[in-house]
Each structure stands twice: as C-alpha cells, then as structure tokens.
Simulated assay, not measured.
Amino acid sequence: MILRLGTRKSKLALTQSNWVKQEIEKRFPDVQVELVKVTTKGDKILDVPLAKVGGKGLFVKEIEEALLDGRIDFAVHSLKDVPTELPQGLEVSVFPEREDPRDALIARDGKGLMELPPGAKVGTSSLRRMAQLRAVRPDLVIESLRGNLDTRLNKLDEGHFDAIILAAAGLKRMGLSGRITEIISPEVLLPAIGQGALGIEFRSEDHETRRILSSLSHEETTIRVRAERAFLARLEGGCQVPIGAYATIEGNELTLEGLIGDEDGKKILRMKKMGSVDDPEFIGDELGKEMLDAGGKEILEAVYEGK
C-alpha cells in the first residue's frame, strides 16, 4: 500500500515529514510512504511580514487543496501554522509527541535575552514574540525576519541582526541545538498555540489512513494542543496576531495560560485557567471567553484595525 504525504519543501518540513514516514513504515512494513512537495503562499511571499500578507492558513491552503482533490492522502504540518477552521471533509486529529514548545534565542555574541545591550537588533517573524519582547525589553530594536531556518541563521551570521528568536523545536529537529544561546521561559515568552507539535491532516472519510496514522498519536500532547486550539478558536485568531497559549498537565489537572497583546507590547493580557484533563476544549474555550471579556476583545480589534 502506498500513502502520499503532502509537505512543504523547506528543510524543516521535509525533516518532520521524513520522521513521520519512517515511523509509519516501521509500524506498518506493508505501507510505503511517498513524499509529495507542495509550495504554499507563505513560501512564495518572503519580502513582506506575514502579518501584512493577511489571511489564515498561509502555509497549509495549497496542501489542503491537494488533499481534497486526492493528489495526496495526508499532510504533516507544524501545528502552529494550522487554523482551527478546516475545509469541510478534512481533519487534524493526530498529534505525535510534542518537541520543546518554547522559543529559543540565538545571539551572535552568546548573550542571553536580558544581557543584550540596549539598541541590539533582534529578528523574528512573529507578532506574538514582538509584543512580548517589547514588553520585557523596550530598549531593543525588534525587526521582522522572514525565510526558512537556514535563511534566518545566515542573516544572523552575516551581521544583519545581533540576535534572532526561533522555535526551539525546529532547531532541535534539525540537529541545531548547539546554535541555541538561551531557551526562553514561557514566563517571559508564552509560546504560540501548538508550537513544537506536529498536526497530521487527512480526509475524514479515509478510515484506513486514519487507522494507520492513529498509531502515531500521543495522549498528553493531544490533550494539551486540544486545549490550546480551543482557546484559539474562541479568539478566532490566526498565527499572524499577537496571541499565545500554553497548556501543562500535572496529574489529572490541566493548566492553560493564554496571552493577548498588541504589537507594541504596551498592552499584554495574560490569564490562566485550570480544570480536568478530560475536558481540554472546555478549558480553552472558557479561558478565551474570560480573556475577551477582560479587555482582550478591544486589544484584538485594535490589532486588526491597524493592519
């Protein structure tokens, strides 16, 4: 049996997809997984900040079209790129074990975030990171940095930036842990929703593919990302607005922390909600409602108006 796996062409996307391919073929010797590379809108537009490109699903839409018309059987995404609203007939419900969800600082001189000199230039493509960085280090110069992992690291090495911030998960998956100067605590930079997790998307009616993919599912990761994505769904946000959420589990208790901010870092709203691991969507949805009522709605409206 051959399964066609849709993936972006970046080194990180291919590394993630090849890992899934190997895991499936290891578990099901009669299954052969073929990689099908797809170029997305987000991959084509590299000279504009993501927030200015607009729309949700910049890195998944073309892959979903390939799923819907049968060119591929399933897709592997970085979950933080996947909107909560999916095309009819598709689902993202298999989540392998999560890699490190935190952000990582890579600095040319080896200094940590709080040690960078005033006026140091820091690059990131994320409004969520920009907002939180400006809140804790308003003296830094935060600039947009697009491109794949290699491109961003090269721009740092060439001296365009004093430091850059990337997801720790991508660096670790690419064998680049040695480049990390500092792993930043979620207390300082609350991670993106689903950061560090993979989301596997497939056609809901394709029961055989579902059966095979389900073998990769990781229970704790699934509970955590379900809570985070329910929070995102309540906020109706995409990955191009300054919001974040991070779920942790201790025993049977799930704690979800959410963040809504403005790009300048002048307004940052952070709240927590706890509850049973048995109902992650309820916790995410309730936290979203409470934060919108506590001033988050006004912050988000101002962010959308400014685009």
Results as ranks from 00 to 15, higher is better:
Asp293Thr: 11
Lys9Tyr: 14
Ala107Glu: 00
Asp264Gly: 14
Arg270Thr: 11
Arg146Pro: 06
Glu253Leu: 15
Tyr304Thr: 06
Leu90Trp: 08
Leu256Val: 05
Arg134Thr: 01
Tyr246Glu: 06
Val82Arg: 03
Met274Gly: 13
Gln22Arg: 12
Arg8His: 09
Ile2Gln: 15
Ile142Cys: 03
Val82Ala: 01
Ala227Trp: 06
Lys44Trp: 14
Glu182Arg: 12
Gly175Ala: 05
Leu156Thr: 06
Ile45Tyr: 03
Pro29Arg: 03
Ile164Leu: 06
Ile299Ser: 02
Tyr304Ile: 07
Ile164Met: 04
Met271Ala: 11
Phe231Ser: 01
Ser78Met: 08
Ser144Trp: 14
Leu153Asn: 06
Met114Asp: 08
Asp100Met: 07
Leu189Glu: 03
Asp69Tyr: 15
Pro118Trp: 14
Leu189Phe: 05
Ile283Ser: 05
Gly238Met: 02
Lys41Gly: 05
Glu99His: 14
Ile268Thr: 04
Ser204Ile: 15
Ile45Ala: 03
His218Met: 09
Thr221Cys: 07
Leu133Cys: 06
Lys11Gln: 10
Glu263Ser: 11
Asp139Ser: 09
Ala104Ile: 02
Ser126Glu: 00
Glu91Lys: 15
Trp19Asn: 09
Lys41Arg: 15
Glu115Pro: 01
Lys267Arg: 13
Pro49His: 02
Lys155Glu: 13
Ile299His: 01
Lys44Leu: 15
Lys44Arg: 15
Ser276Pro: 02
Leu50Lys: 11
Ala197Pro: 04
Val303Asn: 04
Ile165Asp: 00
Val277Thr: 14
Asp73Ala: 09
Ile283Arg: 03
Met114Lys: 11
Val141Ser: 13
Asp150Ala: 14
Arg234Met: 12
